[in-house]
Simulated scan of single mutants.
Amino acid sequence: MSVLPRVGVHCCYYKRKEAIPVLDHADAKRSGLTNSDNVHWDHSVDNAGYYFHGASSCAEALDLMCQKHKDVTGKKVRVDNNVLFEHVLCLSEKHYSKLEKLNGKDKVKLATIKRLKQYAMAVKSELGVEVLGLDLHLDEGRYGPWKIIGLYAMCMLMFNL
């Protein structure tokens, strides 16, 4: 099954204070405080996440990496350091929906997460960042004339060493 041939990418860095709402919004479980207008809550159950370092969220993984930094260097991460590197992949709704119809929702979601983990490891290798986790969002979009126009995206969040 071919997954992710049509993808757009958007990247940003954040200092710790600015990272908190980003981490909250990115959480696939949607259990935080962020209440975005483009989230369609009835579809949030379709979201999925995968987290590294034994964490249950990217926010927890960031805390673990900041503690690890302190343990290794003997110093806290500097306040002016861009600790979070967000890498948002916007997936083609048309292509993703077509794959779901051909292969089933669960199979496509698992294959997408598998490919995204491979992509995350390639980014880690290339840029020297520590991947915190992946959050696949299938609940975002806007209202069109007759239906919800989905914005399928994956947030890959990394600790900027």
Rank of each mutant, 00 (worst) to 15 (best):
L89S: 00
K124A: 14
D135Y: 05
Y143N: 13
L151S: 15
P145R: 07
R78A: 14
Q67M: 13
H25P: 07
P145D: 07
D135I: 07
H40F: 11
A26T: 02
Y50P: 05
V129I: 01
T112L: 01
G133S: 06
G133C: 03
A26Q: 00
H95E: 12
G141W: 02
V88M: 07
R16E: 10
S44N: 12
S31Y: 10
R6S: 14
R78E: 14
L136E: 08
G32T: 08
Q118N: 12
S56T: 11
L84C: 04
S36W: 08
V39H: 03
S44T: 03
D135L: 03
G54C: 07
N38F: 04
N82F: 13
E130S: 14
W41M: 15
I148V: 02
A59L: 03
D24Y: 07
Y119W: 13
G54Q: 11
F159L: 06
H10A: 15
Y152H: 07
V108K: 05
K147Q: 14
L91F: 12
W41R: 15
L91Q: 03
V7D: 05
N160P: 11
K17I: 08
D63A: 01
A28C: 10
F52H: 09
D139Q: 07
S56A: 14
A153N: 13
E126I: 09
A111N: 04
D63T: 11
A28R: 04
E140D: 05
M154T: 04
V77R: 11
L161Y: 15
K17Y: 05
R16C: 08
E140I: 03
D46I: 04
Y50W: 03
D135T: 05
E140F: 09
D63H: 00
N38Y: 00
A122P: 02
M1W: 10
V88L: 10
D135V: 07
N38P: 06
H69D: 10
K76I: 09
I20V: 12
K29P: 02
L116H: 02
L33V: 12
N81Y: 10
P21F: 06
V129E: 06
R16F: 11
K124D: 13
E60C: 00
K75Y: 08
S2Y: 05
S2A: 15
G74E: 04
V131S: 12
G128K: 08
A59F: 01
L33G: 15
M156K: 00
G150H: 13
H95Q: 09
D71I: 10
I149D: 12
E100F: 04
A122F: 11
D63S: 00
L62I: 03
H95N: 08
E93D: 12
A59S: 06
P21S: 12
S31F: 05
A111K: 08
E60W: 05
V7H: 01
L161F: 15
K98P: 00
K147N: 14
G144P: 05
L89C: 05
A61V: 01
G150L: 12
D27C: 09
K109T: 05
S44Y: 02
D27K: 01
T34S: 15
D139C: 06
G141A: 11
D63I: 07
